[in-house]
Each structure stands twice: as structure tokens, then as C-alpha cells.
Design a protein around this nucleic acid. Structure first.
Length: 251
DNA sequence: CGCCAGGCAACAC
DNA sequence: GTGTTGCATGGC
């Protein structure tokens, strides 16, 4: 008897077939070096946390909150150019200076405070330690998605990032209700997957890729690789029915 | 011009 | 607990 995981696995396979490995998390400080492309992506490399990269990943996770990655990246590059992409350095910078540097990423006053707190946190983090999720959530400016992004891509903790693209995509397909919140979507997906960090990272990256190309706020369904499964779940169920697989077991 | 982008927190009820 | 609003900037 197939379960939810079969449905999610089909989506994952359709996405990986369409786009291939994405190579997240992008590291602009490594762009152009060691197999990283100009934008900092490294196809085939997912969720392989390196101590020196964790802080940049955390900063990027904050800067991209409700912001296009293009603009978050500008902030990251400016921090990197001034040698501030290290906890010890950024912890000593004042928030006004940081705010000015990350201005292109938007919400610069709130995000500069958050980056400053993050810098001090990472500076004091013992080598090999993995942050507690609740500790991350207790920091102003770090919510569930940012915490999960840091844990997954920075520390290899296997969690699913139920971001706006994931909720929108799953909602349109019909896997979850349209108004499902972060926590419920996260639980729903992890209950059905139970995979390692690399796979969760790849899935998230693929969902974002498809979200940017097709499952936008205003959907661009033409040539979307998920069309066979989409349409308020009807075609999705039909697909499984044709394969002799029941779609029961969801929820 | 208006809407959107890989959220979050503070506040109202 | 849920619903609403401000937060800033750049691309289209």
C-alpha cells in the first residue's frame, strides 16, 4: 500500500528530471572557485556544511527573507568585499554600517540587527556544535524558515523547508490546503519523506527553481514539469489511479 | 504605476 | 490560537 511518500517522491523525481541537481546553498564567497559557478552554485553539492560557510549561509537566509535572491546577494557581496563575512568581523561592525551595506536586500534596519546578533552567536559557537532550533527561533528576526535554512544547509540537519514556494506548489497540486501554514506543511512533508539532509536540500532547491520558473504568484503553467500531477489534486489522483496506486493515506 | 520577492514580529481580537 | 500590518528595496 503506497503512502504519501510515494506522491512526494513522484514530485521530487519529476523535478530532478526536469532541472537536475541545483547545488545549494549558493556561496558567493566561493563563486568561480572549486567547482562553484559564477553565482555561487555547485551542481551536485548539496547540504555539505563547511564551518567556514555556515555564517554566510545564515546571513543569506536572513537577507533573502521576503526578498528576491538577486537583492540579498548584493548585500552579501558587499559584506564579503569588506571582509565582514566572518562572525568575528561582523560582530565588531555597528548596525548602521551593516544596514547601509545590506540596503539592497530591503528591511535593512531589522536585518542589520539580526545579522549583528547572528555574528555574536556564531562567534561564540563551539566548533562542532549544532545550534538548537529554539535558540535560533529566540533571536529577533529569525523565524521558522530562516532557522530551518540555517540548520539544513549550514549544519546538515535533516529538515524540510516549507517556504512560500513549497506551500504554494503543494497547495496548487492539492497535496495540502491552500492556507496551510509553515509548521503543518513542514510536518506533513517530513512525515512523508524521512530522508537525509542532502535530499531535503535538493528538494527545497528544486521547489524554488520550479517556483521561480512556473509556480509563481501568477502561475506560468506552460511546460511546468508538475502539470501531470497538478490541478487541485484531480489529475494527481488520476495519475496514481492509472498506475494502480491509491492516493489514500494523505492528511 | 502596482505587484511581487526563498519572512518576521508586534499587535489586535 | 488566528488575522492584520509595518518593515525597505529593486525588478518587471
Amino acid at each position: 500500500m503506497p503512502t504519501l511518500s510515494d506522491e512526494i517522491r513522484v514530485l521530487f523525481e519529476a523535478l530532478i528530471a526536469a532541472y537536475g541537481p541545483r547545488g545549494w546553498w549558493p556561496l558567493i564567497s566561493k563563486s568561480g572557485k572549486d567547482g562553484f559557478d559564477a553565482d555561487g552554485y555547485h551542481p551536485g553539492l548539496n547540504c555539505q556544511p563547511d564551518t567556514g560557510d555556515r555564517f554566510e549561509i545564515a546571513c543569506g537566509a536572513v537577507l533573502t527573507q521576503n526578498t528576491a535572491w538577486r537583492n540579498a546577494e548584493r548585500g552579501l557581496r558587499r559584506l564579503h568585499e569588506l571582509g565582514l563575512m566572518r562572525p568575528e568581523a561582523l560582530a565588531n561592525a555597528d548596525t548602521v554600517t551593516i544596514a547601509d551595506l545590506i540596503r539592497p536586500a530591503g528591511f535593512c534596519n531589522q536585518k542589520s540587527e539580526c545579522l549583528s546578533v547572528l555574528a555574536r552567536f556564531f562567534r561564540g559557537l563551539p566548533p562542532g556544535a549544532v545550534p538548537d532550533r529554539d535558540t535560533l527561533l529566540s533571536m529577533k528576526g529569525i523565524g521558522p524558515e530562516t532557522a530551518d535554512s540555517i540548520l539544513l544547509f549550514g549544519f546538515g540537519v535533516p529538515v524540510f523547508i516549507a517556504d512560500a514556494y513549497a506551500r504554494r506548489t503543494f497547495g496548487r497540486i492539492g497535496l495540502i490546503a491552500a492556507d496551510t501554514g509553515y509548521k503543518e506543511c513542514r510536518t506533513f512533508t517530513m512525515d512523508g519523506m524521512r530522508v537525509d539532509a542532502g535530499t531535503y536540500g535538493e528538494f527545497h532547491a528544486l521547489i524554488v527553481e520550479n517556483g521561480k520558473r512556473h509556480c509563481r504568484s501568477k502561475p506560468v503553467c506552460d511546460r511546468c514539469p508538475l502539470i501531470p500531477f497538478c490541478g487541485f489534486s484531480r489529475r494527481f489522483r488520476f495519475f496514481f489511479a492509472n498506475r494502480g496506486i491509491s492516493s489514500r493515506g494523505r492528511r
